[in-house]
């Protein structure tokens, strides 16, 4: 059954038509990758799917419910979790607080208690969960540091922990390994594989083809806001149109 379905998404910025009627359907537990050259409209498509911007045309539904007009925070409460192409963390706050925030937001939205109402500190449960999440992305030791001082790659990992803290049903990752070292890339890929094994639905864009072929069940190629090809990764790789889109670059290094 499809978890996320988008039909005929059209988005224009002024006279620039960024998305020209994109359809997509992602099944439960599937890892769906969107690739395409710079400026193809991948990030814009993410924004429309998560409710960050509204589209001029088309519809988005989640779990069979039409969410086209719902604001981002409502979609987040329904189970959308997303990361940004350039990681966005709460820079002035500590790494630990960043994750605590996300856990507490999830608990409040789910009607769970956040501990004693008069206690200003995060509850023991929340703190433990935050620590283990940070541990899982390899930031376990640095909790007290200011998030804004982290390296680009570490910010990505923190943002990942923040997103996971929301226990999303669908993970939307905009270039999860961009700007990471080879080692970090490897560990992020492993982390994603674990999540995938747990049955979480993932939609991702990525420029690194190794990561894509490692993880993706299905692949969509976007070029100038239109779908060029769609299918399982091996078939798409052999598609003539796709080779043309990536002409001269070689699919492996797009």
């Amino acid at each position: 059954m499809s978890v996320l379905v988008a039909k005929g998404i059209r988005k224009t910025y002024g006279s620039l038509e960024v998305l020209k009627g994109v359809d997509l359907s992602v099944g439960a537990g599937e890892t769906f990758a969107i690739i395409g050259p710079n400026g193809a409209g991948k990030t814009t498509l993410f924004k429309v799917l998560t409710g960050e911007v509204s589209a001029q045309g088309g519809s988005v539904s989640f779990d069979g419910k039409d969410v086209t007009r719902l604001p981002a925070f409502v979609r987040a409460r329904m189970g959308f979790g997303r990361t940004f192409q350039v990681a966005r963390v709460f820079g002035e706050l500590s790494i630990f607080t960043n994750v605590v925030l996300a856990i507490e937001a999830r608990k409040v939205n789910g009607g769970e208690s956040c501990g004693r109402w008069w206690d200003w500190r995060p509850s023991a449960d929340t703190s433990d969960e935050a620590r283990s999440l940070l541990e899982s992305v390899g930031l376990g030791r640095q909790g007290d540091e200011e998030a804004g001082l982290l390296s680009h790659g570490d910010k990505k990992r923190l943002e990942f922990a923040v997103t996971l803290a929301g226990k999303p049903r669908i993970l939307m990752l905009d270039e999860p390994t961009a700007g990471m070292s080879a080692a970090d890339r490897k560990s992020t890929t492993n982390l994603l594989r674990d999540l995938k094994a747990k049955g979480i639905t993932i939609i991702m864009t990525e420029h690194d083809m190794d990561v894509i072929f490692d993880l993706a069940d299905r692949l969509m190629v976007l070029n100038y806001g239109a779908v060029v090809s769609q299918g399982d990764p091996v078939t798409v790789r052999e598609d003539e149109m796709v080779k043309q889109v990536y002409l001269g670059k070689g699919v492996g290094h797009a």
Binding site: A72, F73, F84, R88, F90, A105, R106, N109, T163, G166
Partner: peptide, 15 residues
């Protein structure tokens, strides 16, 4: 504080 620092990001936490 999260709302002030980055309200859009906060919205994606369900705020």
């Amino acid at each position: 504080l999260a709302v002030r620092i980055d309200s859009e990001r906060a919205a994606f936490l369900g705020v």
